[in-house]
């Protein structure tokens, strides 16, 4: 389905249907955590979530119409932001806690056992409180998450793409998701002026998510280099995509 033929309402409905399932860690190590056991839990969970994230992206109307090269680049760029915004949404009703999964709920202070992670936990908690303050609605969250994916390219995608139509399609898709978010906010019944404020407030939060993701990527890379945690499978590929691009 080409996104331009979908109404904002239909677009949001497909986003609801595209939502990935909540992932469980399953074999959670006994508390207290060590640096290695916490990093192992977090990376195991991330690897599981990544598989569902790809399924989610494919269900966003128009995403699979982009060329494969663009699909790969977008997902490689934004995966940690998507994981983080999902974490924020799950944690929104639980001040001071990070709900990585129903069986992996961490208090802020538990971040002390992994070198350098407390700073990232605090960023995540701060962004989550801001979303709580704004009373982020589920449909708004779904639009923001799709927006992160579609807006994640830092370079002109066509540079290496074999399909020049793909970047035109991507721009259409970004307009469609913007329309969807504007529609969701308008439906809330806020006065017009407050609607623009809300839109701006929500979009401004995305730069905080990007910042936390950059810090998180740096941290995961250093944990891997110091051999604190082995990184494998899909997570390794996704981490390498960032490492290679930075050099």
């Amino acid at each position: 389905i080409f996104p331009s033929v979908l109404s904002p309402e239909q677009f949001v409905t497909t986003l609801i249907e595209a939502e990935p399932p909540n992932v469980l860690l399953m074999n959670r190590p006994n508390k207290p955590f060590t640096e290695a056991s916490m990093m192992m839990s977090l990376t195991k969970l991330a690897d599981k979530e990544l598989v569902h994230m790809i399924g989610w992206a494919k269900k966003i109307p128009g995403f699979v119409e982009l060329c494969l090269y663009d699909q790969v680049r977008l997902l490689e760029s934004c995966w940690l932001e998507i994981l983080m915004v999902g974490l924020m949404w799950r944690s929104i009703e639980h001040p001071g806690k990070l709900i990585f999964a129903a069986d992996l709920i961490l208090d802020r202070d538990e971040g002390k056992c992994v070198e350098g992670i407390l700073e990232i936990f605090d960023m995540l908690l701060a962004a989550t409180s801001r979303l709580r303050e704004l009373k982020l609605q589920h449909k708004e969250y779904l639009c923001l998450k799709a927006m992160i994916l579609l807006n994640s390219n830092m370079f002109p995608l066509t540079m290496g793409s074999d399909d020049p139509d793909s970047s035109v399609k991507l721009r259409h898709l970004l307009n469609a998701i913007t329309d969807a978010l504007v529609w969701v906010i308008a439906k809330s019944g806020l006065p017009y002026r407050q609607q623009s404020n809300r839109l701006a407030n929500l979009l401004m939060l995305l730069s905080h998510v990007r910042h936390a993701s950059n810090k998180g990527m740096e941290h995961l890379l250093s944990m891997r280099c110091k051999n604190v945690v082995p990184v494998y499978d899909l997570l390794l590929e996704m981490l390498n995509a960032h490492t290679l691009r930075d050099h």
């Binding site: 790809i54 494919k58 494969l68 699909q71 790969v72 997902l75 899909l234 996704m238």
Partner: peptide, 13 residues
């Protein structure tokens, strides 16, 4: 990125 491409290419979920 082998696994990512593989997962994107599979049509069945």
């Amino acid at each position: 990125s082998h696994k990512l491409v593989q997962l994107l290419a599979t049509t069945a979920e």
